[in-house]
Design a protein around this nucleic acid. Structure first.
Lengths: 337, 337
DNA sequence: CTGTTAGCGCGTTCAC
DNA sequence: GTGAACGCGCTAACAG
């Protein structure tokens, strides 16, 4: 703990100390730091020198309290490990940091109740905005968020009834598009491995419905527990193969798909000749994973950037931002079987 | 933004409002919420009812300022996407949340300068503790951290000269252990694909040195840019194969290893018969990825848990925590070639 | 452009 | 067990 010597505790440096050293009023130090354009160059320089000399670090708790704005954005995700949200969060954090905002992260573990208490806890920090993965929240969560009077962005999904803004795409549309794609390839025996998360289940449901509409019923489905892992993919394929011999396996994420492909290789099944594999997710995981893996590319990074942009715009002018953005998705077809 | 109707702005609820509704003094509300054991049951109940009735959310900026403790832990990482730190952070966050602490994350992008300014920015929130990945920091960073007088944990590495505490393992030891392991297998032509991050380079250096000591010199090495991706692994293997035909490829992370394996499969190389692959990282990525992938298991989750524990202990009693923990690692040998 | 006044919402410290 | 005064460190609003 930088276990200190027996010296007297080095009293924490405050703005007042800096002011004294610089020979100006505290308010001038504050301005020199936060709104330098309002301070004459000479004064500003003396202040900055004093800051360096004293090792002053502004107390943002105090600043946030006084200014009624924390420069904090809260982000709620199901999980961070191996997650399709990783790129989104990374891009979001990068953009926010560039604009002077810090990020407070909460993990919900796919549980709406956990999300509810997390929302309350995070709102205690008085964030200037909040980002949630998905659109499924408890009524209490929605209520709290609306009362908070801060910009709220729901991401990675689409809805007619957002709390405030929503930036993402329709998981139902993904299911339909995948069905169309498979139909175009004339596969005969489709199998599905899906992780047990709400959006994955919806994509899956939609895919099954659309396939049924095209005359393919009773598509075998194996559900594995969230979060997605390579192991889940391997298990899923093994269980599918125990039931029938699919010529294509659709996975609810690229992580699962990678597991499926590993197991396929172990079983000496060639991809995509013996068994085609289809994933879902983003560039960094999928498009470069394997030349034979087709996938649905979502552009998670773009979601992150647009979310940051929407938040920042909304913070400047609380009437300016669009409340719905559909970023769409695209199917990346590889080495066709 | 929960775009409000034209109604008067619903004045934010404060502790004083709750006190008025409950018919007690503000201080009693504070105690009922933070130290319930000091308040009589009847009073406490009236307060909690008032909290619910008013929708009060405690302002932690104000609380932190007054109490001089924020219940915030700052965490600095190179990156979050596809990262070997994901499990660690997840476990760390979970434990901290259970103890009532929130997590503030900063991404350094493997750049010590970025880390330096991030440390300063994060210290502005007056976190009660701070966690950094690795032990390579600028002198200014070390200085600031020591002056902060809060517990500091450096993780995923080992050193004799920690800023405060260090929890991890020796990357040099990993290199030596991998060399021994390979020697035991009697591979003839080793190749290395490493990502360009400080710890990866050190493992790699150590591996090369130990192999040289055993008579194997000039081990081909391909370095790919951080962060680790599947594509990096595929590129790395392609470049290695352009130089010679290795019988084993050692990768600086499991993500790279997965890319190497995908490319191997595309080239119809059997793993591990034609080409053995060795990874580095953690259970969730590696051990279940492929039955033929050997890897170095680090137990990132355990690092996260122990880090949380060390922080919490240190926060209770600033003399109690061990300043160095070596969590070790183990080599997981799979389907030997 | 700079200084002064008056809180921001809460917890510490003492009385009661 | 509960309450009143005070201050945490900073910034909004205004005065000069």
């Amino acid at each position: 703990m930088p276990r200190p010597s027996a010296a007297p505790p080095p009293a924490p440096v405050t703005l007042i100390d800096v002011a004294r050293v610089a020979g100006v009023a505290p308010m001038t130090v504050s301005r020199a730091l936060n709104r330098p354009e309002l301070v004459r160059e000479g004064t500003r320089k003396r202040v900055l020198d004093a800051v360096r000399a004293t090792g002053y670090v502004p107390n943002l708790l105090a600043g946030g309290l006084a200014a009624r704005r924390s420069r904090l954005i809260a982000v709620l995700l199901p999980t961070i490990a191996n997650s399709i949200f990783a790129d989104t969060v990374q891009a979001l954090m990068r953009e926010l940091a560039a604009a002077g905002y810090q990020t407070l992260i909460g993990l919900t573990d796919y549980d709406p109740q956990t999300e509810e208490s997390l929302v309350e806890a995070l709102l205690g920090r008085r964030p200037d905005g909040i980002v949630l993965a998905g659109i499924d929240h408890t009524p209490a969560t929605r209520e709290r968020l609306k009362q908070a009077l801060i910009p709220v962005v729901e991401i990675w999904d689409q809805t007619d009834d957002p709390i405030d803004m929503v930036i993402g795409f329709s998981h139902e549309a993904v299911g339909v598009a995948v069905a169309e794609y498979l139909a175009g390839k004339a596969y005969k025996r489709v199998g599905i491995v899906s992780v047990n998360d709400p959006r994955g289940r919806r994509r899956c449901k939609s895919l099954q419905t659309e396939l049924a509409r095209r005359g393919m019923n009773h598509i075998p489905l194996e559900v594995v527990p969230a979060p997605a892992t390579f192991e889940g993919g391997r298990d899923g394929l093994n269980r599918l193969l125990a039931r029938h011999a699919p010529d294509v396996v659709v996975c609810s994420s690229d992580t699962l798909a990678a597991g499926v492909m590993a197991e396929a290789q172990r079983r000496a099944l060639r991809v995509p000749d013996d068994l085609a594999v289809m994933g879902f997710g983003d560039l960094s995981l999928a498009a470069h994973l394997h030349p034979a893996l087709s996938t649905v590319r979502v552009g998670g990074e773009r979601i992150g950037r647009q979310t940051a942009q929407a938040l920042l715009a909304s913070l400047e002018d609380r009437t300016a931002s669009p409340s719905r953005v559909d970023v769409g998705f695209e199917i990346v077809a590889r080495a066709s079987a």
